Amino acid sequence: MTPPIEIDLISDTSTRPSPAMLAAMVKARVGDEQRDEDPTVLELNARVADLLGMESALFLPSGTMCNQIAFLVHCRPGDEIIAAANAHVFGSEGAGASALAGAQFRTLPTANGVFQAAEVEAAIRAPRHRSPRSRVVSVEQTANRGGGSVWPTATLGEVAALARAHGLAAHMDGARLPNAAVASGEPMSAHTRGFDSAWIDLSKGLGCPVGAVLAGSSGFMEEALFWKHRLGGAMRQAGFIAAAGLYALEHNLQRLAEDHDNARLFAGLVDGAGGVAVFPAEVATNILFLDLTHCQLDAGTVASRLREHGIRFGVEGARRMRVVTHLDVSAEQVRRAAQAFTRIVGGG
Rank of each mutant, 00 (worst) to 15 (best):
S330R: 06
D12H: 09
A20I: 00
S14G: 12
S184T: 05
T325P: 07
G348C: 03
D201Y: 12
D50T: 13
R125H: 14
A248T: 06
R29I: 14
M188E: 13
D298I: 04
F115W: 00
K27G: 01
A123E: 03
A97K: 07
H229S: 10
S11R: 09
W151F: 14
A143W: 03
N262E: 02
C208H: 02
E140I: 11
H326E: 11
T110R: 08
V283Y: 04
N179E: 15
S92L: 03
I344D: 10
S149T: 05
C66R: 06
L100P: 05
A49W: 02
E55I: 00
G63F: 11
G96F: 02
T107Y: 02
A183M: 03
G268A: 12
P109Q: 03
G194Y: 11
G148K: 00
S56V: 00
A248D: 03
I311K: 06
V41S: 12
S189G: 11
E186W: 14
M188Y: 11
Q254P: 05
Q333R: 00
R29F: 13
A257E: 13
S56W: 00
V139N: 07
L256E: 02
E140F: 10
S330D: 06
A111M: 02
G94Y: 01
K228G: 14
F226C: 15
F341N: 13
L327P: 00
I69H: 03
H251K: 14
G274K: 04
A161F: 08
G78D: 09
L253A: 09
A181F: 09
E119Q: 14
E93Y: 11
L288T: 04
A122S: 06
L214H: 04
T342D: 04
S56L: 00
I124L: 09
E6Y: 12
L231G: 04
L22V: 07
D259G: 07
P19M: 00
P109E: 05
H129Y: 09
G174I: 05
A24G: 10
G91M: 10
Q116S: 15
R336C: 08
A263E: 09
L168M: 07
A122Y: 05
F266S: 12
Q68R: 11
G300T: 09
S62R: 15
A122G: 05
A95R: 15
A340H: 05
Y247W: 11
Q254S: 08
L253M: 03
V276P: 00
S92R: 13
L177W: 09
E316Q: 15
A103W: 00
S330T: 03
I5P: 08
H171K: 00
G347K: 04
Q333K: 04
A340Q: 12
L58F: 00
R35M: 14
D271T: 11
